[in-house]
């Protein structure tokens, strides 16, 4: 009787180990993908900083132009 129970437990432990292995594998994949997502987000951050710099440059250039242009138009009209 006890021997039978041993046998059952061994099977139970075996299936538990199998699902542990599956889980471990999935977690390994998850970590791998996590590393890639993390790198991609870092890249997006850099790109964002670059875009911000470019937009601000455009905005300030336009601002200078506008301030330069408006009084000139008025003097021309006078």
């Amino acid at each position: 009787e006890l021997q039978k129970q041993f046998k059952q437990q061994e099977e139970h432990a075996g299936s538990l180990q199998a699902s542990m292995n599956t889980t471990q594998e999935e977690i390994t994949q998850l970590r791998h993908k996590h590393t890639m997502v993390k790198a991609a987000i870092q890249e997006a951050k850099w790109k964002q900083a670059n875009l911000t710099r470019r937009v601000l440059k455009l905005v300030s250039a336009q601002e200078i132009e506008r301030k330069r242009g408006v009084p000139l138009d008025q003097t021309e009209e006078q």
Binding site: K45, L51, T52, V55, L58, V59
Partner: peptide
């Protein structure tokens, strides 16, 4: 990033 992106879009619109 998303928030910044929206700000940039608003800045670029009048340009």
């Amino acid at each position: 990033i998303q928030g910044q992106q929206q700000e940039l879009e608003q800045l670029i619109e009048p340009l």
